[in-house]
Design a protein around this nucleic acid. Structure first.
Length: 282
DNA sequence: TTCCAGGGTCCTA
DNA sequence: TAGGACCATGGA
């Protein structure tokens, strides 16, 4: 799917045919460095890039953004995926149809893999607000100074920060897990190779890391590696599924299997609607 | 004061 | 293999 683009005033104005709901996309617990800066306006960063994204009549405006930067943001926001078609398919599901009309335009992001991995290691037994706080501290303490803001720290930067440095940012018992992941990357593990594997292979590789279980692995695969069949099951999604699909099973593994069989390659998007709806309506 | 949060690990039975 | 204790911490 290709959409028209024009550049003006250091901005890229991009037409988004399938529509995009910035609030649902940035506030549905998949990314932790984005804040609302006004009505229909979000500011945030991904890796070493920072931008202000606002709604326009037919799509979005990304500032700053030139021709060289556009591919990064196009991939990050998944602008080449036909979400209108995805929503048409999911709308046939009686459970999801109401959620789709409420949050139509919610998208699954393609985040930098290392950043996504660390973010979701930090998510264990934690809440969204506090995860964001820890990540901002990690960026401020160890990320590269980009002039007024800090990039997400690289694996080497977190390795050199040490477990104590990571702990000092409020990571708690998860500091050891993050340090171990950084050490693994410094010693040769390459997260960027994961998209080239199968879903099962990539999940197995991720789960070799300390602090990465079934749920965290599925989050990384869905939000940064392009595996749209991944179906992370946290307390909210488990609650949503148990209330609507008693036949899905009780364990998180059973629920995940049931959802992948039911929704296929759209399982990840279905999960995002279930999570966001359950959180905002409880 | 207790419970909960986008869980995972380790120990015990 | 299943179940439960434990891990840090801040907000409700």
């Amino acid at each position: 799917m290709n959409s028209s683009v024009r550049f003006a005033d250091e901005s890229a104005i991009v037409e988004v045919p399938g529509g995009i709901d910035l609030a649902a996309t940035f506030e549905s617990g998949q990314a932790f460095r984005w804040r609302q800066a006004g009505p229909g306006v979000y500011e945030g960063a991904a890796g070493r890039c920072r931008a202000r994204i606002s709604r326009t009549e037919k799509g979005i405006s990304i500032t700053p953004c030139d021709e060289a930067a556009l591919p990064f943001w196009r991939h990050f926001l998944d602008l080449d995926m036909d979400y209108a078609q995805c929503e048409r398919v999911l709308a046939n599901d009686p459970v999801l149809s109401g959620m789709l009309s409420t949050y139509s335009g919610m998208r699954i992001l393609n985040q930098p893999i290392w950043e996504c991995l660390v973010s979701f290691i930090l998510s264990s037994n934690n809440n969204v607000r506090r995860i964001s706080m820890i990540i901002e501290k990690l960026c401020g303490c160890f990320g590269a100074d980009m002039g007024g803001w800090h990039a997400f720290p690289t694996a080497r930067q977190l390795f050199e920060a040490g477990e104590e440095g990571i702990f000092s940012c409020g990571a708690g018992y998860r500091a050891g897990f993050v340090f171990h992941a950084a050490e693994a990357v410094v010693n040769g593990f390459s997260p960027d190779n994961l998209p080239g594997l199968s879903y099962e292979e990539a999940k197995t590789e991720l789960m070799k890391l300390n602090g990465v279980g079934e749920k965290v692995a599925d989050c990384v695969l869905l939000y940064s590696c392009g595996f749209r069949e991944a179906f992370p099951v946290d307390v909210w999604v488990a609650r949503a599924m148990l209330g609507r699909f008693p036949e899905a099973g009780k364990t998180r593994e059973e629920i995940g299997r049931f959802a992948r069989a039911r929704y296929g390659k759209l399982a990840g998007l279905a999960q995002q609607y279930l999570f966001h709806f359950e959180r905002t309506n409880s």
